[in-house]
Amino acid sequence: MNVDAALDPEMRARLLPDNRLDGAANVLVFANADAASGVRNILKQKAGGLEVGPILMGMGNRAHVITPGITARGLLNMAAIAGTPVAHYG
């Protein structure tokens, strides 16, 4: 569905009256990385969001590709994520 339907319960109720979802989405899954990256950057720059990541899934926690906008604190957070043994997940 569109992002505004995911985030606005009333609009979603109008378009999808039978949907079983409650409230606003807190996880958005995008079909491609460009869309997700654009949304991420806008949230960071315009909505004052703080990014933790970007976290690369599927590499067995053996690599993370970060973006040039990261701060030293962000690198420390990524190191903490990279430093967690995979067995810990799940």
């Binding site: 690369l56 926690n61 053996r62 690599a63 993370h64 970060i66 973006t67 040039p68």
Partner: peptide, 16 residues
């Protein structure tokens, strides 16, 4: 090494 962190500069897809 156990884990790599790259990308403080450069294009995401290039690194990936």
């Amino acid at each position: 090494a156990d884990s790599l962190i790259c990308g403080t500069f450069g294009e995401f897809r290039w690194h990936l």
